[in-house]
């Protein structure tokens, strides 16, 4: 016996309310729970769906939540690898070289005190604007949340915060040592490039696999 659309929706809502917020993780769990319940019914369990579901959850809920955390860790590893690959790709190195050269040449001709704060705070400001737009868009349009896209934001947010702290604590060094400033600016630009490229790849990945499934 197969579960009805309403019963599947019930499992989905329950898991979503249990903090399994990402659709790509949840859909697999919904299928697992539903398959297990269907098997129990096929094996002769005559009880109502809700009692079978309750029994399953009492026994397995903590395991499912633990599984959710492990999935997020796997997503982070996947993202870090993708970012690393993009940064070391031909275009990544090109972005780094152009940014590095531009900042270095600019700092020779213009007093670096003028533009150091802008260069170092630009990535974190850009990232905060991106995050606000993303979450407002998700809430306003009620879009599904995907784990890898959000973990990508989390990973990059950590990097950008690091740049920001560097800019606060080592401001004097950065103003005097133009080569260090150019290196940091080059690195933050290539990271922004990797963030944009991996984000595009992730969106395409999810579109191909999830959104157009009929």
């Amino acid at each position: 016996m197969k579960l009805s659309r309403e019963q599947i929706q019930f499992i989905n809502d329950y898991l979503e309310n249990s903090d399994i917020i990402h659709i790509d993780i949840r859909l697999e769990m919904v299928d697992h729970v539903a398959s297990n319940i269907e098997e129990r019914i096929s094996n002769g369990d005559k009880r109502d769906f809700y009692f079978i579901f309750k029994d399953y959850m009492v026994k397995n809920k903590s395991l499912l939540l633990k599984n959710n955390k492990k999935f997020l860790r796997a997503a982070e590893i996947k993202i870090l690898k993708a970012i690393g690959r993009t940064m070391l790709s031909f275009y990544g190195i090109l972005v780094f070289a152009i940014s590095f050269a531009s900042i270095y040449l600019m700092s020779i001709n213009v007093n670096s005190v003028v533009f150091v704060p802008y260069i170092l705070s630009a990535p974190i400001i850009g990232f905060v604007i991106f995050a606000i737009t993303y979450f407002s868009g998700m809430k306003f349009f009620k879009l599904d949340r995907y784990s890898s896209i959000e973990r990508l934001g989390f990973v990059c947010g950590m990097f950008f915060q690091l740049f920001y702290f560097v800019s606060i604590f080592y401001k004097n060094i950065l103003e005097q040592k133009t080569i260090v400033l150019a290196l940091i600016a080059g690195f933050s630009m290539v990271l922004l490039f990797a963030l944009a490229k991996v984000y595009t790849q992730m969106v395409a990945y999810y579109r191909n696999r999830f959104e157009f499934v009929e």
């Binding site: 197969k2 579960l3 009805s4 659309r5 599947i8 859909l27 697999e28 919904v30 299928d31 697992h32 539903a34 269907e38 599984n67 492990k70 999935f71 860790r73 796997a74 997503a75 590893i77 996947k78 690898k81 696999r209 999830f210 499934v213 009929e214």
Partner: peptide
């Protein structure tokens, strides 16, 4: 599932999503 996701992240597995039985 963590093992499956890790194998996928390592590029050893690929995923195909299909609609089956209302899910």
């Amino acid at each position: 599932y963590p093992a499956l996701h890790k194998l996928e992240a390592e590029g050893l597995l690929e995923v195909e999503v299909t609609k089956v039985d209302n899910r």
